[in-house]
């Protein structure tokens, strides 16, 4: 398993957000994490990326425990993420945003940058090239020089993915990547995620769009009220009685 969660729990000041969740993500898979709002999905993302420490249980990545490792080092180890409520570097251009993502695998420090050593220049060229490639990969070459905060919503989502890919992750976490997208955009997104997987990056995604999850994922994990209620292939999870109840129950309330 590339990513393993073992009996992971998290409570905030006495309120339990997540209880004894266990599941794994195998290399090369696209895994979907579903569940009603407030079920604890983003909490899982925040623990995997080191923003929170789990209250109990263990998370390991590529066989190494992640406990006590700060977020930026976890990224360096190969976990990258996007955010539910898009967090781009608004006043930087699209290209610059992706270049920031190249930080983990580049080395130029303060003096090298001041002196513009040969190595630094070569590195900058590599960064420039990589960032351009990634923009092309997500289909944003045309807007490379525009400020990120001026881009339309769908493009911002894709830019976030390109920026995350720039860190050269083994595992990519996507937090509701299709939120707010129209159908054609969602389709493009699914193609993109498949391409990312085919290029060798494992994907774990949180998503509410069931069509996307069922079509795209190899495996689905369903969480409700902080507890894992189902895990399996999309079909298995879709027909699981607890999952149906969790979603239908919610819909009844909504009516």
């Amino acid at each position: 398993m590339l990513l393993e969660l073992n009996n992971v729990g998290k409570s905030f000041g006495g309120i339990t957000a997540l209880r004894d969740v266990t599941f794994g993500v195998a290399e090369g898979e696209i895994v979907g994490l579903i569940g009603p709002n407030g079920a604890g999905k983003t909490t899982i993302f925040n623990m995997v990326t080191g923003i929170f420490e789990p209250s109990n249980g263990h998370i390991s990545f590529a066989g190494q425990p992640l406990a006590g490792i700060p977020p930026h080092k976890i990224t360096a180890r190969g976990i990258a993420r996007t955010f539910q409520n898009i967090r781009l570097f608004g006043h930087l251009s699209a290209l610059e945003n992706v270049k920031v993502g190249c930080h983990t695998w580049t080395r130029a420090g303060f003096w090298a940058s001041l002196l513009k050593t040969r190595r630094q220049r070569e590195e900058e060229r590599a960064v420039e090239q990589k960032a351009s490639e990634l923009l092309a990969f997500v289909g944003l070459s045309d807007v490379a020089d525009l400020r990120a905060d001026t881009l339309p919503y769908g493009q911002q989502r894709r830019l976030e993915i390109a920026r995350a890919l720039a860190t050269q992750p083994k595992l990519l976490l996507l937090d509701e990547p299709a939120a707010g997208m129209i159908e054609s955009e969602t389709k493009e997104l699914m193609e993109l995620v498949r391409k990312i997987r085919d290029n060798g990056t494992t994907v774990l995604l949180v998503e509410h769009d069931m069509g996307l999850v069922m079509n795209l994922c190899d495996k689905v994990v369903c969480i409700n009220f902080g507890v894992k209620i189902a895990e399996g292939t999309p079909d298995e999870v879709q027909n699981h009685p607890d999952v149906i109840e969790a979603y239908l129950g919610k819909e009844e309330e909504a009516c």
Binding site: R81, R87, L92, C102, T106, Q120, A164, T167
Partner: peptide, 26 residues
């Protein structure tokens, strides 16, 4: 020079959004 380097980009990113900057490995 610094502004157009890896360091300058890191500064800009941190100013814009610290959480996102950490998530990018800074």
């Amino acid at each position: 020079r610094l502004h157009r380097s890896r360091i300058g980009r890191a500064f800009e990113a941190i100013k814009a959004d610290e959480t996102a900057a950490k998530a990018m490995g800074l």
